[in-house]
Amino acid sequence: MVFWVPILAWVVALVAAGVALGRGPRPITPYRIARALLRYVLLIPLGLLGLWGFTGHVFVPDQVAASIGWAPSPFQLEVGVANLGIGVTAIIAAFRKELGFSMAVGIMALCFLGGAGIGHLIQIEQTADMAAGNAGPILYTDFITPIAVIVLVALVRILPGGRSEA
């Protein structure tokens, strides 16, 4: 299951953005596309997966550690609570108009998740840990998701229609 969750989160986010655009006002502009993508990337791959990471690390730490190829650790509580903070703030950002809040969430996520991704790469190099929770899709989404948020915030700011919200 750990393998599929990040992939499914991204698929659901893209479909939800498409549905929102399809049901929204016309014309569908690059600004509206970027805005819809930003909302649903914040909401699902960053927000809901942050809550998923919190739940796993805090409530079933042995299973999560095994899926990553680690021994259980008291530090999982700290990782879980960091995931909770990212998840909650990303969900809030998804429904706020101010882009500065979304950018701050993206930067925080890049620092935490990007750092986790680097840790996964080190584990792969040093221990050949190819467990699904270490070397699977979560490794890629640790980098892709926060970078996508930052890029989408920048696009929403620079595309026609977005300057008034910066």
Rank of each mutant, 00 (worst) to 15 (best):
W10N: 13
V12C: 10
A16D: 06
V19L: 11
L21N: 06
R23N: 13
P25I: 06
P25L: 12
P27M: 02
T29Y: 04
Y31I: 00
I33Y: 01
A36Y: 10
L38P: 02
P45A: 01
G47M: 05
G47A: 05
G47I: 09
W52F: 15
W52A: 11
G53D: 13
V60F: 08
D62P: 00
Q63C: 00
A65G: 05
A65K: 06
A66N: 07
I68H: 10
G69V: 05
W70T: 05
P74A: 11
Q76V: 08
L77H: 12
G80H: 02
V81E: 02
G85W: 09
G85R: 03
G87A: 02
T89C: 04
T89R: 04
I91P: 06
A93Y: 02
F95H: 09
R96P: 08
E98T: 11
E98W: 08
G100E: 06
S102L: 05
M108L: 15
L110N: 09
L110Y: 10
F112G: 03
G115H: 11
H120C: 07
L121K: 04
L121S: 04
Q123E: 15
Q126P: 01
T127R: 15
A128G: 08
A128E: 13
A128W: 14
G133H: 12
G133Q: 09
A135W: 06
G136K: 07
I138Y: 03
L139R: 01
T141Q: 05
D142I: 01
F143N: 08
I144Q: 02
T145G: 10
P146I: 07
P146D: 09
I150P: 11
I150D: 10
I150W: 10
V151P: 02
R157G: 00
I158V: 14
I158P: 00
G162R: 00
G162C: 03
S164K: 14
